[in-house]
Computed example of a mutant assay.
Amino acid sequence: MRRIFTYTNSWIIIIAIAIFMNYAFAAAAILPQHDTTNYFFSKKKPKKGILSLSIPPIKPGIYSTTKVNVPRLDDKLLSNVEVYPNPITDQINLKYMISRNTNVTIKMVDVLGNDVITLFSQRVDPGEQILSRQLNNKLNRGFYFIRVIAGTESIIKRISVL
């Protein structure tokens, strides 16, 4: 149904454009043919066609040598997240890169998605960040996930605790 509707409407639009162009060219061709002497002495000015357009002159652009860094929407805010050593015994080390000033939250989550520990939560300046925390037998043995949240971006890494 949608394909038939699109097909029919596209043909209607093409035919409407063809009729409009035909009318425009026909109206422009009806200009009266005058003798040059009669043309210069008559008070009436000849009619312009419907499609007579004037294009404004192109002005040269002004170029600046100043570079402006504008963050693009496709730039990643959070990158290069590394968790070491893996498996973890008593200390966790985390290294990540932030491209601009933002709030960062680092949480340890169990396999079911429940928050176990919030390791870090504050505003961070851009650049490479390193976080080291002692666990001191707070966790049972098993698999956990480290969730690093920066702004609206999130990266999850799997770790195992011995």
Rank of each mutant, 00 (worst) to 15 (best):
I30C: 02
L31G: 10
L31C: 07
P32F: 01
T36V: 14
T37N: 10
N38R: 10
Y39N: 05
K43I: 06
K44T: 13
K44W: 04
K45S: 08
K45Y: 14
K45P: 06
K45E: 14
K45H: 13
K45D: 10
P46K: 06
K47I: 13
K48M: 14
G49W: 00
G49S: 02
I50S: 08
L51G: 13
S52H: 07
S52C: 11
L53Y: 15
L53C: 12
S54F: 11
I55R: 04
P56A: 10
P56W: 10
P56M: 08
K59Y: 11
P60R: 11
G61Y: 03
I62G: 11
I62V: 15
S64Q: 10
T65R: 10
K67V: 13
L73K: 07
D74R: 03
D75H: 10
K76I: 03
K76T: 12
L77C: 09
L77A: 08
L78D: 08
L78Q: 03
S79Y: 01
V81G: 00
V81R: 06
V81D: 01
E82T: 15
V83P: 00
V83F: 06
V83A: 06
Y84C: 09
Y84F: 14
P85K: 04
P85I: 02
N86Y: 01
I88T: 01
N93V: 03
L94A: 08
K95H: 10
Y96E: 04
M97V: 13
S99L: 07
T102K: 00
T102N: 05
N103H: 13
N103G: 09
T105G: 09
T105H: 03
I106K: 01
I106S: 02
K107E: 11
K107S: 09
D110Y: 04
D110F: 02
V111W: 09
L112V: 12
N114H: 15
D115M: 10
V116W: 02
V116E: 04
V116M: 03
T118C: 06
F120A: 04
